[in-house]
Design a protein around this nucleic acid. Structure first.
Length: 253
DNA sequence: AAAAATCCCAACCGCCTGTAC
DNA sequence: AGTACAGGCGGTTGGGATTTT
């Protein structure tokens, strides 16, 4: 009945991934794709469960990932989408190319939540928080219409410079400014940003004996790594910047 | 300079849904 | 139709990095 069990939890490794594990996973997935995640660790020679492999790939190793903090535009979009969708992080992530649900969730919990609270906006309801000290209904009504514009002028914390992202001030706060440098608009350059981040942890150049994995020709890499068809994930259009490679994002996600 | 506090994010956990049998 | 599993999702946490005292 049903399918076979995913993965026995006995003897499987947990915790941070090593460079060697990353290398195995990347090479395997680029060469073969994944028919089902349950088989990936076994075939790739990893002592991980398929779920762990999938998470590592989708949240960290995917070549189309942007790295770095969210830009102001992305942050605004996240707030708008969160207002519509709630904590549906995967749905929100689907509207932000190169971003993962985990990344957006983390950013929401660590940055956006605080900013909204400082602005007097409830991050759950996206409505102005009713202050016990100032229960002026008129003020609340004035604040209600939208969070993107009106919220910034909340009477509390008006001197907070972190209001910029939501209020739409062009020169954002420190984090936004840094994000602008960290996040590149194009996929390829964002991939380079990924490489920089990856390189710090994984030392990709050593692993792959090239000058940065994200800068290499993926098509060449793929063919070099023995594209025998595998599970059929290779050879289909995927990333804009790697048209020759042709991943199938739908298959790979 | 050292210790403490805080921040940040990668990864895990457990539940839910869809689907193969 | 019912069962069991894979994959996906959201919540939570551990620990390294950074900032503050």
């Amino acid at each position: 009945m049903g399918r076979q069990p995913c993965c026995g939890k006995v003897g499987l490794k947990k915790g941070p991934w090593t460079a060697e594990e990353d290398q195995k996973l990347v090479i395997f997935l680029l060469s073969n794709g994944h028919c089902c995640w349950r088989l990936v660790p076994k075939l790739a020679g990893l002592l991980r469960c398929g779920k762990s492999c999938r998470l590592r790939w989708t949240n960290y190793l995917r070549p189309d990932l942007k790295r770095g903090l969210l830009s102001e535009e992305e942050e605004k979009l996240v707030i708008d989408l969160h207002e519509q969708l709630g904590n549906r992080w995967s749905k929100i992530a689907a509207r932000l190319p190169g971003r993962t649900d985990n990344e957006i969730k983390n950013h929401w919990n660590t940055h956006i939540k605080k900013k909204l609270k400082k602005m007097g906006i409830d991050p759950v309801t996206h409505q102005p928080v009713i202050s016990l000290s100032q229960p002026d209904p008129l003020k609340q009504q004035q604040q209600e219409p939208s969070i993107s514009g009106a919220g910034a002028d909340d009477e509390e914390e008006v001197d907070e410079e972190e209001e910029a992202p939501v209020s739409g001030q062009p020169q954002g706060v420190a984090c936004s400014a840094s994000s602008a440098t960290a996040v590149s608009p194009s996929c390829s350059s964002s991939a380079s940003a990924s490489a920089a981040t990856l390189g710090a942890d994984v030392d990709w150049p050593d692993l792959f004996e090239v000058d940065g994995i994200m800068d290499i020709d993926w098509a060449g890499f793929l063919s070099a790594s023995g594209d025998d068809g595998g599970c059929g994930a290779i050879g289909i259009d995927m990333f804009d910047d790697y048209p020759d490679v042709g991943f199938d994002q739908q298959v790979w996600m």
